[in-house]
Amino acid sequence: MRLLVIEDHPDILANIADYLTAAGHVVDCAHNGPGGLHLALTGSYDLIVLDIMLPGMDGFQLCRSLRASGKRTPIIMLTARDTLDDRLQGLREGADDYLVKPFALAELAARIDAVLRRSEGFQSRLQVDDLLLDLATWQVTRAGQPLKLNPACLKLLELLMRKSPGVVRREEMEFALWGDQPPPSDSLRSHLHLLRQAVDRPFAHSLLHTVHGMGYRLAAEHAQ
């Protein structure tokens, strides 16, 4: 996906951009309201991450101007202001979601996925190479052969298939399974081992790949 992040705090902007880039997205950045509005109007983005407190033009004004121009790009607003009135104003101006600082980067990534699912419509199935996940029945097949997965493995598989061929970080997987309270033991590794056994072991080539120091990706060999 191509994302635009508009944030005036350099450290926060760098952290968000690095995290989303590592997840396989193309990220453009702006440090102020006018520059962000120019990019949003002239570029083509799947989603915009928009801070409210910006120099030159605040996030509310930017969102209002963008919607008035006819642009319907989904927007997630970021702010340290957590009052109900602030949240409601952001939604009234046309934002699709609202995230209060400080926040976990894994939560931002999960919210991006959720907003995009809502804006694009719910897919009935996901497919990577000969691996198929039916989202209506949660049945999984590979090369036409049914696979049995527990609920945790199914959730991880859905996340990996939605991001394919991009990399999914461990933090994103932990958040998908346990929210902000992952277990102290390395339960994620156990679930990934079970997933790999089911998805790859009986077949000629592997789809689930470890990206050392980053996370995991689901992709056919020719997409590496």
Score class of each variant (00 low, 15 high):
6 I>Y: 05
6 I>S: 01
8 D>A: 12
9 H>D: 14
10 P>Y: 04
12 I>A: 15
16 I>D: 02
16 I>K: 03
17 A>T: 06
19 Y>D: 05
23 A>N: 01
25 H>D: 13
26 V>K: 07
28 D>G: 02
28 D>P: 01
29 C>W: 01
30 A>G: 00
30 A>E: 04
34 P>I: 00
36 G>H: 09
38 H>L: 08
38 H>T: 13
39 L>Q: 13
39 L>D: 02
41 L>I: 03
42 T>A: 15
50 L>P: 01
51 D>H: 03
53 M>F: 03
55 P>C: 09
56 G>F: 06
59 G>C: 09
60 F>M: 10
62 L>R: 04
62 L>G: 09
62 L>V: 15
65 S>D: 12
65 S>V: 01
65 S>R: 14
66 L>V: 12
66 L>F: 07
67 R>K: 08
67 R>F: 02
69 S>K: 10
70 G>Y: 09
72 R>A: 12
73 T>Q: 08
74 P>D: 07
82 D>L: 05
83 T>G: 12
83 T>V: 00
84 L>I: 14
85 D>N: 13
88 L>Y: 11
90 G>S: 07
90 G>C: 10
90 G>P: 12
92 R>Q: 13
93 E>F: 06
94 G>I: 11
94 G>W: 04
94 G>C: 05
96 D>P: 09
101 K>F: 03
102 P>A: 07
104 A>M: 14
106 A>W: 05
107 E>R: 14
107 E>F: 06
108 L>M: 05
113 D>C: 01
114 A>T: 14
115 V>A: 04
115 V>L: 11
116 L>H: 01
116 L>M: 03
116 L>N: 07
117 R>G: 02
119 S>I: 07
120 E>D: 12
120 E>P: 03
121 G>T: 12
122 F>L: 15
125 R>N: 13
129 D>W: 15
130 D>W: 00
130 D>H: 04
131 L>I: 09
133 L>V: 04
134 D>H: 02
134 D>Y: 09
136 A>E: 14
137 T>K: 08
144 G>M: 07
144 G>Q: 07
148 K>Y: 08
149 L>K: 11
150 N>K: 15
151 P>L: 04
153 C>F: 00
155 K>Y: 01
157 L>Q: 05
160 L>I: 03
161 M>D: 07
165 P>L: 09
165 P>H: 09
168 V>C: 13
169 R>W: 01
170 R>G: 00
170 R>S: 09
173 M>K: 11
173 M>V: 02
175 F>P: 00
177 L>Y: 02
178 W>D: 05
180 D>F: 02
185 S>F: 10
185 S>Q: 13
190 S>I: 15
191 H>F: 10
196 R>I: 04
197 Q>M: 14
198 A>P: 11
199 V>Y: 10
200 D>F: 00
200 D>C: 07
203 F>G: 00
203 F>P: 07
205 H>S: 13
207 L>W: 02
208 L>M: 08
209 H>G: 04
209 H>T: 05
213 G>K: 11
219 A>F: 04
222 H>S: 14
222 H>L: 13
223 A>H: 15
223 A>E: 14
224 Q>H: 15
224 Q>R: 15
